[in-house]
Design a protein around this nucleic acid. Structure first.
Length: 112
DNA sequence: CTAGTGACTGTTT
DNA sequence: AAAACAGCCACTA
């Protein structure tokens, strides 16, 4: 992000995550823990979710390519609709889901 | 400062 | 294999 807008405290921190998410290729996914580790912050998986939840609607970050370690889309408490949108976006990129709503991480996971 | 919360994860039931 | 537990860390009120 811009060096001039670092005044918001979380931006500099969360930007580390956004940077990593931004590198996930189309048709691939990464787990929250993976994003945290690649950002050099092992163990901050929960914060990755928190950071993504704080994204504005008009963002360029491929937030939909981040899933949980079970290979499924993490359920939202507030808006279930967003999870459905995420699944649609992934399916558009060719990511397949089984009848239980899970994807094959071995196959679609981005290794970074 | 304490307590509650969450788009998490690895371990144990 | 699914659910429950217990760590986990920053943000908010």
């Amino acid at each position: 992000m811009s060096e001039h807008t670092d005044r918001r405290p979380h931006d500099s921190r969360w930007d580390r995550f956004y940077r990593v998410v931004d590198r996930i290729p189309e048709g691939r996914v990464a787990t929250y823990g993976q994003v945290a580790t690649l950002a050099g912050l092992h163990g901050w998986a929960r914060q990755v979710g928190y950071a993504l939840a704080a994204l504005p609607e008009d963002n360029d970050v491929p937030w939909h390519r981040v899933v949980n370690a079970r290979g499924e889309i993490s359920p939202r408490r507030g808006s279930p609709a967003h999870a459905l949108i995420q699944r649609s976006l992934l399916e558009e990129e060719g990511v397949a889901f089984d009848e239980r709503g899970r994807m094959d991480l071995e196959r679609v996971r981005w290794e970074g």
